[in-house]
Write a protein that binds this DNA or RNA. Structure first.
Length: 273
DNA sequence: CTCCAGGCTTACG
DNA sequence: CGTAAGCATGGA
């Protein structure tokens, strides 16, 4: 048990804004990171951690080294977003594991948050390791590569998404796809690579780049972001419906700049929460 | 019962 | 090029 001093950090906003799916809140927040359990709560500016993981891992996971003052200044472009930066102040991006992140967002296709959480929970309970009663690790690609589509479909309730998950697990195991190598690519190159995966398009690719590969210039556009971007900046998008999402993403990258991924989180929470 | 939810692929004008 | 059905699943 140890304490970490923070500033511009809000644990509740960070864990309940929809970027991660496995954390649960009771008297404290409980989650599994790097195969270990973290129990966390916040008292004022202090983050109280109960975990076998050391402070450095926590710092890295919650991105506590991000200079929020600088980031807020950078993305605070107008009177539309300014109040959101105050309202949800302390919301941080989380540095997720790429594999868990990728599978999670494949599960998010044509789905809702409770069902996404449920699917991921099933995947862990069926195929992960139980590290403490009721708490499971996220299964590695090696494990999922051995699973049959119907087995996953029936046990994890992932529906038509099962073949895509198993396919990319298999490709990673056979070195046909270098997922972890994407961290060394640029945003554009990484995006192109991720979109080669069957069942992964621009939105999922952008989520993985933002949440797992440090590409803060990524701006995932889903239905919620569509809503609020149309409401706030609609006059800037004139193209046909089919190209609108890409148009919005391009606009946002230009408009909010290199930290636009952070802007995306605050905008998302405003429409989602 | 029908409709829809953090999309993507494929099929058809 | 452009739009739209279909894909499983469960809750409203």
């Amino acid at each position: 048990m140890y304490r970490i001093n923070t500033n511009d950090f809000n644990l509740d906003h960070t864990l309940s804004c929809g970027q991660v799916f496995r954390w649960e809140k009771n008297d404290c927040w409980t989650g599994i990171v790097n195969g270990a359990i973290i129990r966390a709560k916040q008292e004022g500016a202090e983050l109280i951690i109960d975990s076998s993981l050391d402070e450095k891992v926590i710092q890295d996971y919650f991105r506590l080294d991000d200079d929020m003052e600088k980031i807020y200044t950078s993305i605070n472009r107008d009177e539309k977003i300014a109040p959101l930066l105050w309202k949800y102040r302390g919301l941080r991006l989380i540095r997720q594991d790429p594999w868990e992140c990728l599978v999670s967002y494949i599960c998010s296709k044509a789905n809702n948050i409770p069902k996404i959480k449920n699917s991921i929970k099933h995947i862990c309970e069926c195929f992960g390791n139980e590290i403490e009663t009721g708490y499971y690790t996220f299964p590695s690609p090696d494990v999922l590569a051995e699973v049959k589509p119907n087995e996953m479909k029936q046990q994890c309730r992932v529906g038509f998404r099962a073949p895509d998950i198993l396919n990319i697990a298999d490709m990673i195991v056979n070195h046909e796809f270098d997922l972890y190598g994407i961290k060394d690519l640029s945003y554009r190159e990484g995006r192109k690579e991720l979109m080669k995966i069957k069942g992964v398009g621009s939105k999922i690719a952008d989520c993985v780049l933002l949440f797992a590969f440090d590409k803060l210039e990524s701006f995932p556009v889903d239905t919620h972001i569509m809503q609020i971007m149309n409401r706030f900046y609609g006059e800037n998008f004139k193209g046909p419906k089919s190209k609108k999402k890409e148009e919005i993403a391009e606009f946002a990258r230009e408009y909010f700049g290199k930290y636009c991924g952070y802007a995306q989180e605050y905008l998302f929470l405003e429409d989602f929460g």
